[in-house]
Amino acid sequence: MQVSMTVNGQQRTDEVEPRMLLAHHLRDNLGLTATNIGCDSTSCGACTVIVDGLTVKSCTVLALQAEGSEVTTLEGLSTDGEMHPVQAAFRSEHGLQCGFCTSGMVMASIGVLADNPNPTDREVREGLEGNLCRCTGYHNIVQAVLKAAEAGPAAGQVPSSQQEVSA
């Protein structure tokens, strides 16, 4: 079937099988491989992307369910070569080890900051409860999100050509 969606600001129309998952569509059809597939069972959050302003686990959404939606992946976060505040904070606070969970962590963190621009340590941990890091570097991840919050509202948004993130 045909599916159309706006991905990182670009209109994309493709032919997909109904059973194609959004994660596979992004990776295999659109070549956007920053979105990782970890558990493939809705547990780890590595595949988190933002659809119509809300974080979702793209291994558990059909590509067809994103028809007409605005989708943002990690590739869509930087503007004019400038990293998104959450990306910059993950770098400065070293919020990653092997990096496998990082794409999903960054996307989920934007959702956390959209919902709560000034979270406490505890609130960051609760907001990231759907994301697992096998390297267990949670401490620096939490520090990175707290650091990103200092950048103000931009930390909870995706680039302006795109959608508003609500929670």
């Binding site: 809705t42 959050g45 974080t55 979702v56 686990k57 959404v61 919902d115 409860e129 759907g130 994301n131």
Partner: peptide
């Protein structure tokens, strides 16, 4: 229920 991503769907 679950985590934020689950509650979003």
């Amino acid at each position: 229920v679950g985590d934020p991503q689950v509650r979003h769907r």
